[in-house]
Write a protein that binds this DNA or RNA. Structure first.
Lengths: 400, 400
DNA sequence: CACTTTAGTTCACGACTCGGACTATGTATC
DNA sequence: GATACATAGTCCGAGTCGTGAACTAAAGTG
């Protein structure tokens, strides 16, 4: 019928507090029960009981005594690395990738298969992805990491486990979640590559300051197309039909040339890889980088021009969304040395802001999306441990 | 330190369920306890207890028996009109306004004072606003409506009860919330006019379909400036520094003329009232409307051109935010007959979307912001009745 | 070695919701 | 019109879970 939040019951209260405690342990890395109590507002007794459950569920482990100034030393609590793990997969235009991440977010397996997937059949690519996934799952099992699920990054729009649109792969509708899920025996979730890259950057990009983690920003991922991921309060913003964040099709040249999307003057049409390469008169991104390093003027002009157009799009993003930062990822991260000055100048020219938010450069590059995919799985476990434990009857909660 | 959600406790559980029940009653207008139980997932016993509290707090009233098909007839529950009321105030460039709204959202008092506030001192305008507020509060008292608080719509940026920036009024920082709050003895909240207009439109605009209320949309309010309100999942989106939604300063003409905000080629610079009036060679908005009605070509061209520019900005909004609808408000609602065709065409030209979201026209016009301000107050009571009751010891909860 | 300080546990208590039994009050059936 | 049935709402015992104070544990300090 309509939006209707769940009733608050005892089980929900416990689930919520379980998540609160686990989240605090995850956030700090290592804390005592007493500090968790102080930080969360729960009493020591409640925290003790909750921690007991988390330990017996295998999600948390005591990691030895921790020295304190005075008084009895605390016992440090940390996420149990072998408590739960996430499998991240990625289908992209020119590669397949897999990552296994443990509960703490550390990558424990990473594999990339480079191959152009544009001219191959869907079934062929899916079979390859399943192969990659099986190998990754095998590695996880060998390391004693129980996979809590999988998440696949796709270069297109995914709704309810189905790839609805993948322009650069020219795929029809594909029920990817079901086919992959059946093959590897895990629950599989699909998500747009640009959104996952943004999350990966937030969790693993190293931009977060301990006092003020980056939770409101826009991530620009320049792969073959130009994607955008909007993160609001730590969560991806998807819009009413899961189509939000399409930075590549923001208008930067009203009345400009027609774009493949059907619009006119889109950013992707003016500053996409095809356009930059053509203007710089080189064949590949590697060539472009070399040309820029060599000081080739045509290459530098092409990149700076793309930077200017990007700045126009970002100026609109800043006025509309007021993010705390912008992160340049993918190809834009590689080109940042020759691009960001033009982009910053263009942003400054098109907004009146005296102090625009920082323009950061991704440290993960093309790995951001797979890392984000794997992180999504373990973050979900941390955000709702009760749901995870209920789902797998192997893990038993409660005493005796 | 960082984001940290509250621990779930018994009191919070009850507060949450109280809100759930009251929200269900507000949403449906009139329901029985049994239906509330079925819809919320709570048991009949819990609902009974919660409703008893709400009734004794004066927020809900039994509104007589309701016929059912078979079995014992239900007793209908409805919001008590005299349970709590909200005072909405608005300071704008050329008027002050006040509205009192009862719990159900019905306006019970409405007063507008037209006067140009640009060339007057801040203190003078604030004194006038306090006068207007006092008169409104008096009317509420005379009608037996207890005011739960007040909300002031300001044409600028408001942070923590202080007007930080009000470009069209040329105001310095003003502690409006405190001065008005002290004068009328109510808690006062400040909010941007464009955001409140969006909320007013959502709650009272009549766009909501019962099966699918409008909860994700962008509202364009064309007053002297051009404002935008972004509503995501029923709530205003403010961004990291409360500056989100500034539709007026989205770039629609890269490299265009300098705007008062410091940027170049902003929508407001290209399609603001000043620009339209100048191009149409008329003095006031009323003149412009008459000219359009009379078929004056210069006026029609000016409006259509503004519509085209608006379409460019909205195309970017659609690709970035993917809203379920766009609502034209303020002056754009008045001009809609001569503007919306150009806007729709421009949106179509600049996006590839085969089916862009509907372009709706506001039914509230300039009243949207005050109505929204008053609505904010009562909505907050409905969203968290426990907090409201705890705040005023007069209302006693619990039996005996 | 007593005193202080901090960490963590135990347990009686209270605040909830749940769920079934019970009462109230109407319509359908014969 | 008496009986069966269906639905609304109340009552009360049971279960769950956080609280808070008392208690035990384990260090450092004078």
């Amino acid at each position: 019928m309509t939006v209707r939040s769940e009733p608050a019951q005892h089980a929900g209260m416990r689930a919520s507090n379980l998540a609160l405690v686990l989240g605090e342990i995850a956030r700090t890395g290592s804390v005592s029960r007493a500090r968790v109590a102080a930080h969360t507002g729960l009493t020591k007794s409640s925290v003790s009981a909750l921690v007991t459950d988390l330990i017996s569920a295998g999600l948390v482990a005591e990691s030895g005594p921790a020295s304190t100034e005075r008084g009895r030393p605390a016992t440090a609590l940390a996420l149990a690395p072998a408590g739960a793990a996430g499998l991240g997969l990625e289908i992209n235009v020119d590669y397949l990738a897999a990552v296994v991440t443990d509960l703490a977010g550390a990558p424990r397996y990473h594999h990339v298969v480079r191959r152009d997937n544009r001219d191959r059949g869907v079934d062929e690519v899916v079979a390859d992805l399943i192969d990659v996934a099986r190998t990754a799952a095998g590695s996880a099992a060998a390391q004693g990491l129980p996979l809590a699920g999988a998440c696949v990054a796709v270069p297109g729009l995914a709704v309810d486990g189905t790839v609805v649109r993948a322009p650069n792969l020219e795929w029809p509708r594909v029920d990817l979640a079901d086919s992959v899920g059946d093959a590897i025996g895990l629950e599989v979730v699909l998500e747009n590559e640009a959104n996952l890259a943004a999350l990966g950057e937030m969790w693993f990009g190293g931009h977060q300051d301990d006092s003020a983690p980056l939770r409101d920003f826009v991530h620009v991922s320049g792969e073959i197309g130009i994607g955008g991921g909007i993160v609001i309060d730590g969560e991806v913003f998807r819009g009413a039909h899961a189509g939000a964040g399409e930075l590549g099709h923001v208008v930067v040249a009203p009345g400009g040339p027609r774009c493949a999307c059907g619009g006119h003057g889109c950013l992707e049409r003016m500053a996409g890889q095809q356009e930059i390469l053509a203007r710089a008169q080189v064949a590949t991104m590697a060539d472009l980088t070399h040309a820029c390093e060599a000081g080739d003027q045509a290459a530098l002009d092409a990149v700076a021009d793309a930077g200017r157009h990007l700045g126009v799009a970002l100026a609109s993003v800043l006025t509309l969304l007021d993010p705390a930062a912008i992160v340049l990822g993918g190809a834009f991260a590689t080109l940042a040395p020759w691009l960001s000055a033009a982009t910053s100048a263009s942003i400054g020219h098109h907004t009146g802001a005296t102090e625009p938010p920082p323009l950061l450069v991704s440290g993960l590059g093309s790995d951001a999306a797979v890392r984000g995919a794997a992180g999504t799985v373990v973050r979900r476990v941390i955000a709702d441990p009760a749901a995870y434990l209920a789902q797998r009857p192997a893990g038993r909660v409660g005493p005796s």
